[in-house]
Design a protein around this nucleic acid. Structure first.
Lengths: 194, 194
DNA sequence: ACCTGAACACCGTTCAAGT
DNA sequence: ACCTGAACACCGTTCAAGT
């Protein structure tokens, strides 16, 4: 790209994301990131505490990108919400396969990430998930969607996710979520696959 | 432990698993594994092609451990099957948190792993999942269960999984699986959610 | 056949300098 | 304030030896 003489944390993270997208997580190395910025590796430590901090930064980057496309708290139709979540996460995993795996691995405790999570909790509460279930349901939903999306993007599965597969993920999650919505007792939601 | 003068692939993998359990994935290093066997790092290369091969071996180890406790193809009650799977995977993730994360990350194409998968496919077929859905349903199930289990074990979530949480995972997966089973109550989502 | 010593390229990180 | 050179500990890996 260009040759910015002046580095910033944002520039470092962007370079790291590029390296990850092109060469996988193993490609995210201090020298590699530095080279993309026309800088020596040591210069990075001015903007990033250490490599762990750099990876945390990548995770936060993806979370923000996930969140801007996420359902707002005024959403109410569970199926639409889940559908959007699955679509957005799958697309994200396709564009950033290596880093999306990190989302599953690393704890995300930054203020921004916590805010995103609260927002999600609010959505779940609004559609009828009981207060004491909200936190765990959110974990299950994000784990499922991210694992399927990231798993296919990083080659855990031999074939890529088709549109039909994506549809099945939505149906699965919607039906599973149904177990925590009022007005029913663990019945399966739909029968469209018969 | 002891001081085996003679090394084998099994011993190397066992030592690597021990290192992973104690010090996380970063603790799985050629010198560290070798030290556990009272051997120099170079000796490992006689039994393991490279580090990638070593990690593949760890994954296979866990898959086998998972499989011995898995439902047999004569199982028929979906809820019991899912329950057992969740219990076994959660327990496995608790004992081997670091490596269980690897299960989610690395493709598993060894003959043994493929056999395990076929076995699972057979179970799904038996309980009524249609042929063209079997592969994707298996991906969704394993991704969900492993991600939730491994995610809590590696500290992605702040609090550990309680028994109640585990129960919720079972309920979620059973309900989700219901979307792909015949003969359940013919409710549609739209009716349920008004 | 199986292990070791020496050696190499490479990575993360620090610190004292440079501008 | 921000970047660089030199330096260190450490890791993955190879190869020619040793037994």
């Amino acid at each position: 790209m260009g040759r910015p003489v002046c580095i910033s944390r944002g520039a470092v993270l962007a370079a790291a994301l590029g390296a990850a997208d092109e060469n996988g997580l193993d490609g995210v190395t201090m020298p590699a990131v530095a080279r993309r910025l026309n800088v020596t590796p040591m210069a990075l430590y001015r903007h990033v505490r250490d490599k762990d901090d750099l990876l945390d930064g990548l995770v936060e980057l993806l979370i923000d990108e996930l969140a801007v496309a996420m359902p707002r708290s005024d959403a109410s139709d569970p199926e639409r919400i889940v559908e959007r979540f699955v679509t957005v996460a799958t697309d994200l995993a396709r564009r950033h396969p290596a880093v999306s795996m990190l989302l599953l691995t690393r704890p995300v405790n930054t203020p921004s990430a916590r805010a995103r999570r609260s927002q999600f909790h609010e959505v779940l509460r609004r559609i009828g998930v009981r207060d004491e279930h909200v936190v765990t349901v959110e974990r299950i939903l994000t784990s499922t969607v991210l694992a399927v999306a990231a798993g296919q993007a990083t080659g855990r599965f031999s074939t890529a996710l088709t549109d039909a597969d994506e549809r099945m993920v939505v149906d699965f999650v919607v039906a599973g979520l149904g177990a925590f919505l009022p007005g029913r007792a663990g019945l399966s939601c739909r029968e469209i696959h018969q």
